[in-house]
Design a protein around this nucleic acid. Sequence first.
DNA 1: TGCCACTTGACACCGAGTGCCATATTATTA
DNA 2: TAATAATATGGCACTCGGTGTCAAGTGGCA
Lengths: 195, 195
Amino acid sequence: MEQELSLRDKKKAAVREALIDAALRLFRARGFDAVTIDEIAAAAEVSRRSFFRYFPTKEAVLLERRHEQLASFRTLLAAPRKGEAPFALVRRACLALAAEYVARRKQILEERTIVAAAPSLVARDLELDRAFEGAIEEALGGTRRARICAAATIGVTRVVLEDWANSGARSDLLALGGEALDLLEPLAPARRAAS
Amino acid sequence: MEQELSLRDKKKAAVREALIDAALRLFRARGFDAVTIDEIAAAAEVSRRSFFRYFPTKEAVLLERRHEQLASFRTLLAAPRKGEAPFALVRRACLALAAEYVARRKQILEERTIVAAAPSLVARDLELDRAFEGAIEEALGGTRRARICAAATIGVTRVVLEDWANSGARSDLLALGGEALDLLEPLAPARRAAS
DNA sequence: TGCCACTTGACACCGAGTGCCATATTATTA
DNA sequence: TAATAATATGGCACTCGGTGTCAAGTGGCA
């Protein structure tokens, strides 16, 4: 079922990975702002011009993983269980994401450290949050109430995540997240009348 | 009581205003990205180098007003009424801000139009929202619950503002804002036990 | 093998943002 | 009022992120 990767595609994937690896390594060592794209490209042994063929901006190479998370988040929201209330679906998707965070805590903490130190990255990160918010909004029906609930959910989620990260990923993210989401239950759009 | 402005300071204020005016006029006409700092400086009849003495970035000249709003928001939060519950104070501050939006709707809508069209500005705007969030958080006591409530408040506020802007400022911002904030009342940190 | 499509590197270019210094303008003191 | 100190300005050169273009290289395929 898996599409056979051509040599060309394998090379592209390899370059992409090399760029990400090089970038993360350099960012970790010296901080986002102090690393130049020339250096990343050189470390990955491609030309500077090629970097921009793989990533539109310097931020993108770092936010790559978050884009992947967004994609899987959307997938989850697109597959509600039978009879599941919209907000319950959202809750489940958020907690699934949280579980992934816990599983990859080391990587997550590292990325957050880099992001937190660079204002421009923080801004981009917030922009990404809006994409998550849009997904929730849609899952809740797109109404005004849905948008309000989605915005509150994202805000609350961000706070919980922050606390978790500040605890060095030692607190129980699933439990804290669950509690916080419970608080928002009353905000959820009223369920449609049963047919 | 007012500090007498020296000639030097008057000139500085004039240049500052000239830069803001020129920038807004150009942004309005051609969009944020299509305007270069050289053009703004030329329109304000100062050198490009001087632009950066007044504003650290191109974004800053546009977000200037929002910074002022943030300052007055903080002032409001710093002056609670006698016996006023923290969340009631936050509510009052938000609605006061809303009233100012209504009063200056034309200007607000214009700025929002410019910001919405430029991704980098949207990101910076979200960053500014975080500063508002921090102020609320503090007003609510800085606890974990306070942070959650603050995040939800900002999220909700943003949605309400968006709807209002999308209605061409024709909907009743005060009423909608009040309703939305009522929804959050249960999220507010429990009041401290009366002494 | 040879042709086509795609990928790469090199170069030139633009705009944002910064450091530096010489000059001009305002404030201060004699 | 004149001299001097403080500060604002302009010009220049530079770095870095990001883009368009084109010629050369490499893989896919008949």
